[in-house]
Design a protein around this nucleic acid. Structure first.
Lengths: 246, 246
DNA sequence: CGGATATCTGTGATTTTCCTGAGAAACGCA
DNA sequence: TGCGTTTCTCAGGAAAATCACAGATATCCG
């Protein structure tokens, strides 16, 4: 089931209308805090745990619809935690967090059951998008919710990564795609450059803040080129996207 | 009976509309976990057992539509388990798991009755495909005909392993075939290299992740050669297949 | 109008990702 | 056993994406 909030954001809800529940497991407090904040903002109910022991315990009682699980925990191996979790909650989908340079070997099989993973450092958009996908596919949320965002004559398909305006296909790079997704998930809403940077770029991004301007510029070339513009600048505040008509 | 989920995946269902039930029997926990995960993701209902004793007991009560049975169990010989299973469930199809170097002729006799087998280490695509075939043929799920995947002018027959594009026959090696099958079972959906690796290569594959790139390259030469391409790269995300038209 | 500030965008260096040829090793089969 | 096929590693090179920098342009406000 999905509902649309007054701000125009669509939220995933469970079939009974209650909020989706997500358990976040990571030993670094800064990460759990970051994730908890971002995921709460999605309208989800969040609990967190700092080790495998706590994860299993919390899961048993909290009964989450999805779990975000760091593979590197102080007390247990991530796979061991997974096993225990699955004993109580056989169908819960898991999003694994793995270190980028952690030799690519131990990733084997992680996505096999419909689970997914992201590498640290991640961007929040990435985590949220993957989680939404997992929850959508697990059936914890109404299955009818589909993977296509629509704003005016602009559409973005989160499964096929296809973007089109007025029926015409548009190729975007990975970063452009994530930026547009963030804008489209918050239509008619001004998003500051800081918000965009925090959401779309990975949390350890240390570059110039004007990458946002740069990528907005790229997007405009591809999406607004020669058409009624949909991406608007609010000087001193940020950017927003809205249907061309209004 | 089959239904199509919102993601475009077709699921096998029993004639009465309930999910197909599969019993997994293996003494290695990692194997039963891996299989349970993957098979559950197919929309099936899974139970597992770690020995022959448990298998027979669970089968009696669970009444599965198919069984995945390791030939090498701690307490009983696989054949003994089979015998007992058949006493309760005379028609249930069985997929045997055998070690690579196991005596082949013993198995050959068994598969004559419509059963099938795969050797360890297997790939999940292989197991899922064989199991689908067994269930389809056993009549536990109706619709015994349709073993052909079609995407645009490309067709792949899961029974005969025949592949053709625009009517022209194409020879694929075993790995190429499984990769293409996985792509075609998820048309218009971006599949990451990790997902492909987890699904198409055997669970103990420890090699370079760029085999996926290599085999995509092979497939393109055979399928897209001189034609409108159907296999597309989404840089930084993965690959997808879709009809040439769109 | 003119300066201050904010935003836009062209250029190109760097990095990342992908593709593919060559050949080694394993396999299947006669 | 020997030969053709298949699988896979390795590495070079091509292509694409990301981003810093800086000058151009737009907007605001006195």
């Amino acid at each position: 089931m999905t509902t649309t909030s007054p701000q125009g954001r669509t939220e995933l809800l469970r079939p009974d209308g209650s909020p989706v529940r997500v358990l976040v497991v990571d030993d670094e407090l800064s990460i759990t805090e970051l994730l908890s904040m971002a995921l709460r903002y999605e309208g989800w109910q969040i609990r967190s745990a700092g080790d495998g022991q706590g994860a299993v315990q919390t899961a048993r009682e909290f009964r989450p619809d999805a779990v975000v699980l760091d593979m590197m925990l102080p007390d247990m191996d991530g796979l061991a935690v997974l096993g225990r979790l699955r004993r109580d909650l056989p169908d819960v989908p898991v999003l694994f967090l793995t270190a980028k340079d952690a030799v690519e070997d131990r990733i084997a099989g992680l996505t096999a059951g419909g689970d997914d993973y992201v590498t640290k450092p991640f961007s929040l958009e990435e985590v949220v998008a993957r989680l939404r996908g997992l929850i959508r596919r697990s059936g914890a949320a109404d299955r009818r919710s589909d993977s296509v965002l629509v704003v005016g004559d602009l559409t973005l398909d989160e499964d096929s990564h296809e973007v089109s305006r007025a029926g015409e296909n548009i190729h975007l790079t990975a970063t452009e795609f994530e930026l547009l997704r963030f804008l489209m998930r918050n239509p008619r809403r001004v998003l500051s450059k800081a918000q965009i940077l925090d959401r779309v770029w990975s949390y350890d991004f240390g570059g110039q803040a004007n990458v946002v301007e740069l990528y907005i510029s790229y997007l405009r070339r591809k999406i607004d080129a020669g058409r009624e513009p949909m991406i608007h600048t609010r000087r001193g505040a940020g950017y927003l996207i809205k249907p061309a008509a209004s």
